[in-house]
Amino acid sequence: MTTPPALDIHELRFRYAGMPSTDPVVDIPSLKLDRAEQMLLNGRSGSGKSTLLYLIAGLMEPQGGQVLINGKNVHQLQGEKRDLFRGRTIGMIFQTFNLLQGFTALENVLAALMFSDLPPQHHRERATALLDSLGIDRPNQFVERLSIGQQQRVAVARAVACEPTLVLADEPTASLDPENADAAMDLILNACIETGAALLCTSHDPSLASRFGRCVDLSRLRVEPELDSTTLEMSTDRTRRDGGTTID
């Protein structure tokens, strides 16, 4: 039996209530991400990149289509099962990190492990080792007292703590200067390689393309069923096709 891909999307369509059905925010005929593959999803602001990630994570309901992660249809899972599946299979990194304020760096990683299938007695050991490998030397410091760079590292550690199949990174470098953005991207890419997680990273910055094995422009996905990096030309003309609706 062959191993299913990390992510397999078919005919995924999403629009917000009240919007015309002819103009969906997300309209992806097909998109596949192999295990441990790293893909950059490029698109201008408002093109539906974040929405796509939330759909993949099962935090939003599509009007049609399916999202398979590790061969499992996310939207067929209901309630608690879907939450637990997300916690164990998907790691998420946000532009503003979304760390738990009032908790230490260590606790932020432990919070992710709370929902993993790793035995509780190994949680602390795993979290400490992960933070250490990412260069956090004060794991018991409250996150709000850490520098932006260190907060980013904690966010990465938390995303990969449960050894997920897929890491979704939503504009992870958007709030960093170019130098720090490079370092942060390295961190995310390496952490995913080390844990064997596939990475789907969204960005409106085409310069990140060279760091990824594969780049896809979100707007092109709508007309061409499947694209890969060999056929994708990172165009600066990101408004070639209109139809993107501002959602952020």
């Binding site: 309630g79 939450d83 916690g87 164990r88 979304n98 738990l100 709370m114 929902f115």
Partner: peptide, 16 residues
């Protein structure tokens, strides 16, 4: 609410 949203992303269910 942000804390709750983060916990939900990490795998915490609504009943929890």
């Amino acid at each position: 609410r942000r804390q709750i949203a983060i916990l939900r992303v990490l795998g915490c269910s609504r009943p929890r």
